[in-house]
């Protein structure tokens, strides 16, 4: 799979993921209004917007928890608008969670194992031991090393520090080998002392992965994103490079406000 992705010469500007005219209405209330977003392989885009702008609605629409009223979602040329939530993940569209949603009573290794088992389609092995599952522990080992949390492998997740839990969250997502990643506020709630860990992990995401970062923290957005889309009242108000967005008067007034 990865070998295919390493041939950008064939279709250099091909769209990896696109959202076309996505809308969602509850009665008269429009919570998503004709949203267009396009990600190429390796894209680093951030979606920002004030509270209540419709960011989480957007995530729910894209991941399949909500059904859009109109519009299309296309992943690698395939229309996934009506696909079930879990099929979308299997096709490579993966999200991370804003509030840490890990398997708290399981160990770090078992958390990652779950993701790896799904990615390798080995979870239907009913009677063979985990240790005898070919390739499983090697892959878990690799991910633990990659995120530098190997010495926490046997800890139950609920015994970890918050920042470490966020790293496990990123580890789960990476274990799924996504093509498109919706990274939902990866630094939310992380104390300053641990935020470097997160910045580093986000910076080290695979180069060919298309990432849409949904974030409040402007430092993270401006250090990470090559493109920024601003969501206001369910609609994309502006799109552009960080520079353009930083100098956009309307955005400054509406969103950045006095805080910046």
């Amino acid at each position: 799979m990865t070998t295919l992705n390493e041939q950008p010469a064939v279709t250099p500007t091909a769209s990896r993921f696109s959202v076309q005219g996505l809308s969602k209405r509850f009665g008269n209330l429009v919570v998503a209004d004709d949203i267009h977003i396009d990600l190429t392989p390796g894209a680093r885009m951030a979606l920002i917007g004030p509270n209540g702008a419709g960011k989480s609605t957007f995530v729910n629409l894209v991941t399949g928890l909500l059904t859009p009223s109109s519009g299309r979602i296309v992943l690698d040329g395939e229309d996934i608008t009506t696909m079930s939530a879990s099929r979308r993940v299997r096709n490579g569209l993966v999200r991370s969670f804003q509030v840490t949603r890990l398997f708290r009573e399981l160990t770090v290794a078992d958390n990652i194992r779950l993701a790896v088992l799904q990615e390798r389609q080995q979870y239907m092995r009913l009677f063979s031991g985990l240790a005898n599952t070919p390739g499983l522990d090697e892959e878990v080992q690799r991910i633990l090393n990659e995120l530098n949390i190997r010495d926490r492998a046997s800890s139950l997740v609920h015994n970890l520090a918050y920042g470490e839990q966020r790293l496990v969250e990123i580890a789960l997502v990476l274990a799924l080998k996504p093509k498109v990643l919706l990274l939902d506020e990866p630094a939310a709630g992380v104390p300053d002392s641990e935020s470097d860990l997160i910045l580093e992990a986000v910076g080290n995401l695979p180069k060919d992965l298309a990432v849409l970062l949904i974030e409040h923290d402007m430092d993270l957005v401006f250090s990470f994103a090559e493109q920024i889309a601003v969501l206001v009242n369910g609609a994309v108000m502006a799109t552009g490079t960080p520079q353009e967005i930083a100098h956009n008067e309307t955005v400054r007034n509406i969103y950045l406000g006095k805080g910046h």
Partner: peptide
Amino acid sequence: SPFGLSAQGIREDRQRMTSL
């Protein structure tokens, strides 16, 4: 087994398992 671990994942958080 892998299947048993998946069951425990469902016990812990069904929705997260869907997201995986």
